[in-house]
Design a protein around this nucleic acid. Structure first.
Lengths: 252, 252
DNA sequence: ATTGACATTAATGTTACGTAATAGTTTATA
DNA sequence: TATAAACTATTACGTAACATTAATGTCAAT
């Protein structure tokens, strides 16, 4: 039985390029060349190719396969065992990598201040909902889909510098808030400064700030467990403290 | 603060070649070139390099890193999550590969009967060669390529159940052989039963059994180190014992 | 002035092919 | 029988992330 390059390629489910390549590197040379220099493969070649593909599927490199096929049975077994331990090392490294990436993502998401888009989207949405409850349809027109879109656009259009500033501001806000909370008085100068910073922070997301919205958001912080959890990480009860402070700040 | 290429390389623990390469692909271009065309890196470059190496350690490709660093925070997080899922896919594939290699090694060692075409092909081929030596061209016609093809076809056409049966039979054969060997007499009832099983086992591969072929195969077991090793794993000297038993069995 | 340490660009090698481009051969059809 | 379709061949570039080598240029120190 003999095959042309195309026939063998189809038989084995590989490309002719692959066969030519295997010829080139001396891994599988055809039994003979026909007068017109076409490659003619024989039964032995088919068998050898089968072996090659077998090892290839196990992830053995072509170089290794070449060595394996030219060696005796025991060497083949040893080669496979070598290969296995190499694969195990690879898996260990991969596991480590995965653990690191997971850790990084986790850190980026929550252990550090969150700025995930989803959160902001939910944030704004909640705000809108809240406004709706508080101010009815009029407010909806004011803070509706359009507002969401603009907010998002604002976020997406932020430059690196702006983002860095926002980050800095966030840290400052949280620190100030924490310090104020420890003093215990929502009307204190420090607490009012925190409100000021909070307003500034909000303006990164809103393009039309209003006292009413600020108050309703502060209220939301207490009611919505997602936000409560966030602010409680700064200090337990901090969300409520902020709300009280904002109430004073806005009615001043 | 500014650094020459060597200084930065040492600082970061990478090669200068890498830095030039990063410059070449536009991943990290130095702040400026000195009058003598040397690369001069600034603080920003150091920071950027730090980030590059961070992502690189997580297995992100340089192309991806380039994209990530030019994008905003949200996209970076999304990129990391994409990367993570890619890594998980990779691990699944690797696990599969490892399982396959392990199975193959196990099979090669004889704990499982090999369904790998390779082994049987070598097996039959050796048999053919042996027959040739023993019986000349006449035998070749009998066990030639055609026989190989039929054997393979038989193997390939085996159902899962048949395969399981074969496995069971193999275990039984090996155990019987081992017990007979320990008794020490190739003519014993147990040894002859082992021959019977061996015949049955052979008939899984041959579609025309003959006493002559059985004998020559048994002889092959002793002469060919591949087979000797296999049977010696059951007990040292077992291949020779089996041959003696088969001789008696076939001449009975 | 020379040496040694550093810098530059450019080319090549690595894996396992994919993808043209170009040219010749065989087979099928009009 | 002419032509087209299908097949063959070689050559060579592209991929990822650099390492290595070569040839050459520059700088500080002796």
């Amino acid at each position: 039985m003999h095959y042309t390059i195309n026939e063998l390629a189809k038989l084995a489910g590989i490309s002719t390029r692959t066969l030519r390549y295997y010829d080139e590197i001396g891994l599988l040379s055809p039994a003979r060349m026909s007068s017109n220099k076409y490659r003619i493969y024989g039964q032995e070649d088919v068998d050898r190719l089968q072996q090659i593909l077998f090892y290839r599927e196990l992830g053995v490199s072509l170089k290794e396969i070449k060595k394996i096929l030219s060696s005796e049975y025991f060497d083949r077994l040893a080669a496979l065992e070598d290969h296995l331990s190499a694969l195990l090392v690879k898996r260990k490294q991969l596991d480590l990598l995965i653990a690191n990436v997971e850790k990084t993502i986790k850190a980026a998401k929550g252990e550090i201040v969150m700025s995930d888009q989803e959160k902001f989207e939910g944030f704004i949405k909640k705000l809108v909902e809240d406004n709706e409850q508080q101010y009815g349809k009029e407010a909806r027109a004011k803070y509706g889909d359009d507002a969401v879109d603009r907010s998002n656009a604002k976020l997406m259009g932020m430059s690196k510098e702006q983002y860095a500033e926002l980050e800095k501001l966030t840290v400052e806000l949280n620190e100030t808030l924490k310090a104020a909370f420890e003093q215990g008085d929502p009307a204190s100068e420090l607490a009012q400064k925190a409100c000021e910073l909070h307003k500034k922070w909000l303006c990164y997301f809103w393009d039309d700030y209003s006292k009413e919205a600020h108050i309703s958001l502060a209220q939301l912080y207490v009611e919505d467990p997602r936000f409560t959890a966030y602010y409680d990480k700064i200090a337990v009860g901090c969300a409520a403290f902020l709300r009280d402070a904002v109430l004073i700040y806005c009615n001043k």
